[in-house]
Design a binder for these strands. Structure first.
Lengths: 252, 252
DNA sequence: CAACTCAATTTATACTACTATATAGCCGTG
DNA sequence: CACGGCTATATAGTAGTATAAATTGAGTTG
């Protein structure tokens, strides 16, 4: 890797902050830099940022690369460019809150208890509903996948194997809804939440505690009982949230 | 050159509502053109599209404008560019399904019964959950806004006024969740759904039919009863979906 | 003196031509 | 056969210039 594409400005390319992404392309760098400034609040809504030429100079990129990044930011609803007036940071209500990057930046820059609550709330909305939908319309094949994931959870010998099987279980349930909108929402929420509890090692000693709760979900889906599936899945995610909060609490 | 495609700024919609890509900027044109081709299926996942120079020529734009558009498409998960290999259409599972544009293109290009079902399913997931959350934590101020919207629905004298008040009601409920993720999801789903039932004029004669159902939602939120609010809102959206399907059925 | 017109100015938008860099595929050598 | 370098070709990035649009204010007119 080691991007040697920028010989003139040496001290770039080394991103000491996040363990994130080396080898970013330039426009991606622009997107992340400005995106994080906006989400983080150092660039406030309504604020007019420097004109292209100046901003490009400040970020050490060409105007072209800057503009490519701006288009992406504009697509995410973070900025708005108008001729003569300049590029303005848009109000938070225009942001595409469900965009993967926007969500990731919020996780990174505003990891407040409140935001975790909102994410958990979304999860507790999606997953029980998905379980109910899955119970309603799952095919035999889809049920088999859920079953296999459950078996893998049961057979897991360490935390890592369990976490993988757990994710597979939830994905299998979501898949059985045949609704890619729901799958997409789940994916986005899940990946945001996972930045917090990072394989909470403190549950390691008894990582299979959630197995029976998952079993109830499986059984409800097997016998095509939507309401039971909804309640069972609700129990799963509520238990998961409780664990996560406990983890975060002992962390601080 | 030949930039006479967008001389007048007259037909500029003050409401970025409909899918009217007239008088768009060039990169926006590229985004829409290729985005629609991909979503519509004439460009299939895995397919390698022509190299920049050729594609720019085909679309009658410069390479720069093309690349700006490509960055946006790449941010939406529709394409993936790699040096030497070219730009490849990504698999549907990588698409940001909840992106406003992606959703709009799907509405426009795949208006199947099945897709409407998925949207309705999402709505029936979000809104009851939101109503319950609102009942749990609404402030007095937020309740007042819901109340006002309800009063406006009651006072509506024509379909247009009722539709506006109806939207305001649902927005007020969503706002009371204090969860911008949920608000964003609602907004996106709602605007996608609204492309279908286009102010269904066939319900014009008795457009206030849903008023009592909304009243139950309001009352449940007023007395902070989450479960009642959930059920009442569920009734509202199910009734709405039934109307919509009836409308679509009589349309074809 | 108010209102209207119009041009100057500023800024984003768009184009062309060019350089830099990365990598798939090939080719030669051990 | 494997390994290492060569090359062709694609995207990534830069520089400079021209165009269009909108704000501003000066100038003109009722």
């Amino acid at each position: 890797m080691t991007r040697r594409s920028t010989p003139p400005s040496s001290a770039r390319a080394r991103h000491p902050k996040g363990a994130t992404p080396t080898t970013r392309s330039l426009y991606d760098l622009v997107v992340h830099e400005l995106g994080q400034r906006i989400i983080g609040g150092s660039l406030k809504p309504g604020e007019l940022l420097p004109r292209e030429e100046l901003l490009a100079e400040q970020l050490k990129v060409s105007r072209t690369a800057l503009r490519e990044g701006m288009k992406v930011l504009s697509a995410k609803g973070l900025v708005e460019s108008r001729t003569k007036v300049g590029t303005r940071v848009r109000d938070a209500r225009a942001w595409q809150q469900l965009d993967a990057d926007v969500l990731a930046w919020r996780c990174e820059l505003m990891p407040t208890e409140d935001f975790v609550r909102k994410l958990a709330e979304m999860r507790e909305l999606v997953e029980p509903g998905a379980a109910a939908a899955a119970a309603k319309q799952r095919t035999y094949e889809q049920l088999r996948h859920i079953d296999e994931a459950y078996a893998a959870m049961d057979a897991a010998v360490d935390l890592e194997a369990w976490a993988a099987a757990d994710l597979a279980f939830h994905e299998a349930v979501l898949n059985a809804t045949n609704n890619e909108l729901m799958i997409s929402l789940f994916t986005v929420i899940e990946s945001a939440l996972s930045t917090f509890f990072v394989l909470s090692a403190r549950t390691a000693k008894n990582f299979k505690a959630a197995l029976p709760a998952h079993g109830k979900v499986l059984e409800a889906i097997r016998r095509s009982d939507p309401e039971a599936a909804r309640l069972a899945m609700l129990a799963v995610v509520e238990e998961s949230r409780a664990n996560m909060q406990k983890g975060r609490a002992s962390e601080n």
